[in-house]
Design a protein around this nucleic acid. Structure first.
Lengths: 215, 215
DNA sequence: ATGGCCCGCTTGTGATCACAAACCCGGGCG
DNA sequence: CGCCCGGGTTTGTGATCACAAGCGGGCCAT
């Protein structure tokens, strides 16, 4: 059947699939090593294999998925060395981003960050790992958006994407009881305009969260 | 015609296309703003549109190409702000990579770097911009491979890729007469085991090369 | 009972096609 | 002389299909 049944608003099919898979992976909703099939993805998003393949290829290019030698698609199961590398990259890029955001951080931003931090605490209380990861990323993204550095932010998001499934595994097996207290350091340093303190707080928040990922 | 005319050894079609386009872009063989067509790419690599589209999508995901609102493909023409961002990313990542490579840098590596540096001088003498860019990247990659940090190296190569067309424009209009002298600083710092000196030399080499890119 | 083999089904790959939108260019009108 | 419009052509999109390779489960022989 060649008839296009739905009006197809504006977002192209492969973009819907890409965004859908991407947020699922970044939010840690898929465990490492999980296998995916093109036909399955197509069925789920109600498209044919072609857009599914494009979305998968794009995610593979960004490190969010991996291809086996025979072309099978799965979420990657990261080695400890790779986790350490990605944590180091997060530290490098996000410290720079926060530093660039600092001079532009007004009170409205700080209020918003505090609000998001409250939502994180709620997710922790509710033992909602996906909500925790999503809100935590929103905290960081909100701050970094002020840096006005889209290339760097894209780089940071690529790293988050690669760590998504690993975060899923971690927060599935550990029961966190407290919200990340380094976020309070970040907010305090922003208020004080303290650049060295901010850099240290961001680096601590990033590395502390990932140190316990190493099995 | 559904018959596969060539034996198709092992590399898949989209991989050949991807690699071909990627090296051309990274080596600065395509000027910024140049338009590409899927059918043209397919004709050039003797494949159909499907693998050409996958390769293009992958390169778009890596920032090596951009899509217009109507889906047309072209090499991006970077703004000065974006160039500055990418230069800062190069500095951040490559300084870290060189620092990690330092403890593993033996004499054989330093000899090889000096050899490559000689080739760079030859390319400068011959007024061969593409050869210069390619050999310059080989110098950096040879050093960073010793860091044993594949994720970071991939990140650095992604940045190089995004800067490829811009480098093409730069080296097309400027006639360089000398090999980059910061490479000698890098080699000297490697020999001396001087980490602060190495970090400074790499940062200088990266930022100096890109400062003159800003129009 | 167990190990190896074979067949069938699943899955990725790439070519082809129908279609819609965008682009380009030339002619006509103000 | 310049601007706008209209049609032919180019171009991207997505569905479908033919094909090959892989994986798995069941069957047979030892």
């Amino acid at each position: 059947m060649l008839i296009q049944t739905r009006p197809d608003p504006s977002p192209s099919a492969h973009d819907r699939v890409y965004r859908g898979l991407r947020t699922r992976i970044m939010h840690g909703e898929i465990e490492p090593g999980h296998a995916l099939t093109l036909r399955g993805i197509g069925r789920e998003f109600d498209v044919s294999m072609t857009p599914a393949r494009e979305a998968v290829r794009r995610l593979v290019a960004e490190g969010a998925l991996q291809l086996s030698s025979s072309g099978r698609v799965s979420t990657p199961d990261l080695s400890n060395e790779r986790i350490e590398e990605l944590a180091a990259l997060r530290a490098l890029i996000e410290v720079e981003l926060s530093s660039r955001a600092l001079p532009r951080a007004h009170m409205a931003l700080i209020d918003r960050l505090q609000l998001i931090n409250g939502t994180i605490a709620d997710a922790v209380q509710a033992h909602d790992p996906v909500g925790y990861i999503r809100t935590n990323l929103e905290f960081h993204r909100t701050l970094y958006l002020r840096a006005q550095a889209p290339a760097m932010l894209a780089m940071a998001e690529t790293v988050w994407l690669q760590l998504g499934p690993t975060m899923c595994k971690l927060y599935g097996r550990m029961n966190r009881t407290e919200a990340p207290h380094f976020h309070r350091h970040i907010i305090a340093a922003l208020k004080a305009g303290d650049e060295p303190g901010l850099r240290l707080a961001v680096r601590s928040d990033v590395t502390q969260g990932l140190r316990m990922l190493t099995t």
